[in-house]
């Protein structure tokens, strides 16, 4: 039977469990409780996911090559030990038998002879090799739906420009009010379950509003500067939260404005750099960094005949910029 008092006590320890921050006794209590409480199991899964992300918060250090050989040797040892092994390994979920699909005698399938192939890591989108501009029309096609929205987008924005300022101001005030409420609750010596829920709701609402404020500011900026031509849409990938950008060219033909959002801060020692693409060549543009929301607006000088401009991209480059683009493209797009 699940004791509700035990539930409350354990529930408040779940984050500590996820962070390996409990004393042994408390840890054991949590593990016992998890066997009978689906709510806590479910919440722990969410907290563990938050904690798991922290493994990425340290700089990358490659292990020595010989470590893989040592692992192979250790696996050989496992192979030799397993048939006579009588005690099954212990997991967080208790004692388990050897994985059922293994041979009945507990032995291991023989490894193929010959060298083990080096298996490349599947790269995320931002690490993929630089895409040739000849291929970029394919990307443009992938975003044809977005580009088709451009005309509607502009018309609606022009109609709404007068209301944007008021909305931004109102939402700014709401964000400030919510942030203040959160701070007040966090200053309390003891926080109740109700307080906790209230803080979560307020913080979530404030985050959403902050994002809306920035979207509105961005759109307001685009539509208030006048004489800008139909924008080109840029994307860093197909995922819903991938970075996005809009590049607009000025009617004078010698300026362009690139606005980006959703970009993580450039890695230490690096900056983002814009590349403008003309027929058969790419011209280095300005370097830039982004604010805490991943936003930046970059004013660019176009060269020559603006009609030759066919697209642009953004790459990660060493601080100071480069003469030729690196392989790490974070945004790419073509002129409509």
């Amino acid at each position: 039977m699940n004791d509700p008092r035990n539930h409350d006590a354990v529930s408040s320890d779940l984050a500590g469990y996820a962070l390996d921050a409990l004393e042994e006794d408390a840890r054991r209590l949590v593990e016992e409780h998890l066997t009978e409480c689906d709510d806590c199991t479910s919440e722990l899964a969410q907290l563990m996911e938050g904690a798991g992300n922290l493994a990425f918060a340290v700089p990358s250090v490659t292990p020595p090559d010989y470590l893989l050989d040592r692992l192979r040797a250790a696996l050989e040892g496992e192979t030799a030990r397993m048939p006579s092994e009588s005690t099954a390994p212990v997991t967080e979920e208790g004692i388990i038998g050897r994985p059922g699909a293994r041979p009945a005698d507990g032995g291991l399938a023989p490894a193929p002879a010959g060298p083990v192939p080096i298996l490349p890591i599947r790269n995320p989108w931002y690490a993929s090799p630089r895409l040739a501009w000849a291929v970029s029309t394919g990307i443009a096609a992938a975003f044809v739906g977005v580009v088709a929205l451009a005309a509607v987008f502009n018309t609606r924005l022009n109609d709404r420009i007068d209301t944007l300022s008021a909305q931004v101001a109102a939402q700014d005030r709401d964000v400030a009010t919510m942030s203040a409420s959160v701070s007040v609750i966090e200053q309390k010596a003891e926080v109740t379950q109700t307080d906790l829920q209230r803080v979560s709701v307020l913080q979530e609402a404030a985050d959403t509003l902050e994002q809306q404020v920035n979207d509105l500011r961005w759109l307001q900026y685009v539509t208030s500067t006048g004489d800008w031509l139909t924008p080109s849409f840029f994307s860093g990938g197909l995922q819903p939260q991938a970075p996005q950008g809009i590049l607009v060219t000025h009617s004078s033909g010698d300026r362009a404005l690139l606005m980006v959002n959703g970009l993580a801060p450039a890695p230490e020692g690096s900056v983002y750099q814009v590349w403008l693409t003309y027929e058969g060549r790419e011209v280095a543009g300005k370097t830039f960094t982004v604010d805490r929301y991943g936003y930046a607006v970059i004013d660019l000088d176009l060269i020559g005949d603006a009609t030759e401009y066919i697209g642009a991209s953004v790459t990660v480059e060493p601080t100071g910029g480069s003469d030729t683009p690196s392989d790490y493209v974070v945004l790419i797009g073509t002129s409509p």
């Binding site: 408040s12 320890d13 779940l14 984050a15 500590g16 996820a18 962070l19 921050a21 969410q46 907290l47 996911e49 938050g50 904690a51 798991g52 992300n53 922290l54 990425f56 599947r122 995320p124 989108w125 966090e186 010596a189 003891e190 926080v191 906790l196 803080v199 979560s200 913080q203 979530e204 985050d207 995922q239 819903p240 939260q241 993580a264």
Partner: peptide
């Protein structure tokens, strides 16, 4: 209690902020 609450809120915010942004989610 404050430490526990901060841990819990912080982890939830981290999870929300990083959903679908890292290699593992792809």
């Amino acid at each position: 209690g404050t430490v526990k609450t901060r841990m819990r809120l912080g982890l939830k915010k981290l999870r929300a902020a990083l959903a679908s942004k890292l290699r593992s989610t792809e």
